[in-house]
């Protein structure tokens, strides 16, 4: 059965026709061609499909299409530019990725963290990122990359 759902995607209103069984990941990846949304575990465990729903990270594989009605959905493409640029630079420097399959989800979740908390402790980063799995890298480089991105953003603010 076909339905329609309306929400704001990266700041712009969209209305999408979708099948009842479609989850948000299907709508974003297949209908709206957002990059980096990949359903790996399909059971809200790995975080590879993470997007922000009203600023909070959610696993888009486990959100039904209708649940997005009226929400503000943010994907990798629409993340806060200042924060995600700092994260990208930091992930590149620390090699916080290998195969890259989990990377968009990592950036989405980490951006949400830095929006909430501009100077998180290592323990807070560990706790916040616990819903995003990486099989290749090990987590040290990822956690360090987030820590350093937060530090560089704070330094930037002080300088400005």
């Amino acid at each position: 059965m076909t339905n329609a759902v309306s929400f704001r995607l990266n700041g712009k209103p969209v209305t999408v026709a979708y099948e009842t069984r479609d989850v948000l990941a299907d709508i974003l990846a297949d209908h709206l061609h957002m990059r980096g949304i990949r359903v790996a575990c399909d059971q809200n465990v790995c975080g590879a499909c993470s997007v922000l729903c009203d600023g909070e990270p959610v696993a888009s594989c486990s959100v039904f299409g209708f649940a997005a009605e009226g929400c503000e959905i943010t994907t990798l493409e629409g993340l806060d530019r200042r924060i995600v640029t700092a994260l990208r630079d930091s992930f590149a420097r620390e090699i916080g990725f290998q195969c890259g399959f989990c990377t968009p989800g990592m950036l989405v979740t980490a951006t949400a963290l830095l929006l909430h908390n501009s100077a998180p402790s290592r323990a807070e980063i560990v706790s916040w990122m616990s819903g995003n799995l990486c099989r290749c890298t090990g987590y040290d480089a990822i956690l360090t990359a987030i820590e350093r991105a937060a530090a560089s953003l704070c330094d930037g603010e002080k300088a400005a």
């Binding site: 990059r35 980096g36 949304i37 990798l76 990208r88 992930f91 590149a92 090699i95 990725f97 890259g100």
Partner: peptide
């Protein structure tokens, strides 16, 4: 990393 920037942009 050769494909790093591409990976960081999904």
């Amino acid at each position: 990393y050769a494909e790093g920037r591409a990976k960081l942009h999904g």
